[in-house]
């Protein structure tokens, strides 16, 4: 029922939290409940390449069946010297509850800035990844409802992607999809990035089958893959759409690309 009351035209004022006045309750009695979380939908995606990493997210912000914004970014540069983040080398993406995502981003950003101020050098991704896990776990019993992915280049200059659950479990991976359409995108990534279920033609049957050898994908290939993944997700998930924001992290810094997605 809560799902339908999101539309202000139908039911008068709408409440994003569960403290709406109870209709039909006995006079004077009012149930007080505070639900601190909302799911704002959307989806994110990160792929690590040989010498780059791409972080992507759609720009739709929803609550229930309504679209609150078509231009709400989910991917952020982290730990630059200034607020405009022109020299940032790390990128964070967040999906889930937008307010928690925003708070998490601000927190991690200020920590990275403090690190730069104290040590006179930027934080590397590995350290930042561990710190993000700590931040999330510190709120183990009132978590940030956000699925975070952190991307950058490691000490050897290779693309690095770290994915998180809301309470700080994390893992370095080749690729990861997060958010509402994660279940649609993730098998596609297995298939197209890690070549899962792909075998060398004519290599035999059963155990004789030879897996197709993995090779690092070029930046262009990955950009196309990301666009295809989101085009698929947009088609079948109502919470995903409007715009595709991509951050490409290379040794030259972070490049931001904005592409249109379907707006229906």
């Amino acid at each position: 029922m809560a799902m339908f009351s999101q539309n202000p035209l139908m039911n008068g004022p709408n409440y994003s939290f569960g403290d709406a006045p109870k209709i039909g309750a006995p006079e004077g009695a009012r149930e007080h409940r505070f639900d601190p979380y909302t799911d704002n939908g959307g989806s994110t995606l990160a792929i690590a390449g040989a010498d780059f990493a791409i972080m992507a997210g759609d720009t739709r912000l929803t609550s229930g069946y309504s679209i609150n914004s078509r231009h709400h970014p989910k991917v952020f540069k982290i730990g630059g010297t200034t607020a405009d983040q022109h020299d940032a080398t790390i990128v964070l993406s967040v999906v889930g509850f937008a307010a928690d995502g925003e708070a998490l981003k601000e927190r991690l950003d200020s920590i990275c800035k403090m690190y730069r101020y104290r040590h006179g050098k930027p934080m590397n991704v590995k350290a930042c990844a561990q710190r993000l896990s700590t931040i999330l776990y510190q709120k183990r019993f009132f978590p940030y409802y956000a699925y975070a992915i952190l991307g950058g280049l490691d000490e050897e200059g290779k693309g690095a992607v770290y994915s998180y659950d809301p309470v700080g479990s994390y893992e370095r991976e080749q690729c990861r999809a997060g958010g509402a359409a994660a279940s649609l995108i993730m098998p596609f990534l297995d298939n197209q990035v890690n070549f899962k279920n792909q075998y060398v033609p004519g290599s035999g049957e059963g155990h004789a089958l030879q897996e197709r050898e993995r090779r690092p994908l070029s930046r262009n290939e990955v950009e196309i893959l990301v666009k295809d993944a989101f085009d698929g997700a947009v088609e079948r998930h109502i919470e995903v759409g409007d715009g595709l924001q991509m951050m490409v992290i290379t040794s030259n810094g972070v490049e931001e690309i904005l592409l249109p997605l379907k707006k229906d």
Partner: peptide, 11 residues
């Protein structure tokens, strides 16, 4: 279903 939609829509 979700996974299949994602795969079919892109392949």
């Amino acid at each position: 279903t979700d996974q299949l939609y994602g795969m079919c829509e892109s392949l």
